[in-house]
Design a binder for these strands. Structure first.
Lengths: 108, 108
DNA sequence: TAGATATGCAACCATAGGGTTGCATATCTC
DNA sequence: GAGATATGCAACCCTATGGTTGCATATCTA
């Protein structure tokens, strides 16, 4: 079971985000497909995909000699709900109270 | 203007996420406040806060000899909308089409 | 002003991690 | 079976970066 850390770290790298973008455009691409046009070795891409798999952001299915990769939206949604939603809810009461407090002190 | 990369990278570190959690519990804390109970030097915490500031996830206000830190929800919401929302929309048509395609080949 | 408190800055260290090269393995096709 | 294609594995390199120590600076208070 991947941790939050696995997911955040996997998302931290721009190359991996680009790979997810590519899979978003066309899901189920093979390693070779995903390498096309990237200034990177196949092995580098494979490593990135392994990281994404470890974070469960990508699910891979071996098909003969090819390996096809699919986006898994579940972890991203979990992160969005469990983590980003937390900061999203407008707890403006406490926030603005503190800010007002500070601003008051500043202007006095 | 912080880039997506700044934000994702800032969020990638568990210590920094814990700092954001702390600020979420009590916004406007000083460096010293945020250091309390952490197995880390004050300088390390200061570095993390600098990274969060660079990503505009935290806004700091100097107040006498203290520096108070506030969460900024804007970047997180932008990320959530621009990036996570993208994967959230159920583009199941293309996905399941490709999956069906693969499964079909597999079972044949 | 002197000392205490709160933070800033810089050099340094060690590890993690992105990337490469080289070779091994598995699958398809002729 | 032989060669071509697609991927896996391992060692290695180099930089980014999380963390430290040491000292400087600024602010508050007695």
């Amino acid at each position: 079971m991947p941790t939050d850390d696995d997911i955040f770290r996997a998302l931290a790298d721009p190359s991996r985000r680009r790979l997810l973008d590519r899979l978003h455009l066309a899901d189920g691409q093979s390693l070779g497909d995903l390498c096309a046009g990237l200034a990177m070795t196949r092995q580098a891409v494979a490593k990135h995909l392994a990281t994404l798999e470890a974070a469960n952001l990508v699910v891979a299915v071996r098909q003969g000699r090819e390996k096809h990769h699919f986006i898994n939206r579940v972890p991203i949604n979990e992160i969005a709900e469990r983590w980003i939603g937390k900061f999203d809810q407008p707890r403006l009461s406490a926030l603005s109270a503190l800010k007002r407090n500070l601003e008051g002190e500043e202007n006095d």
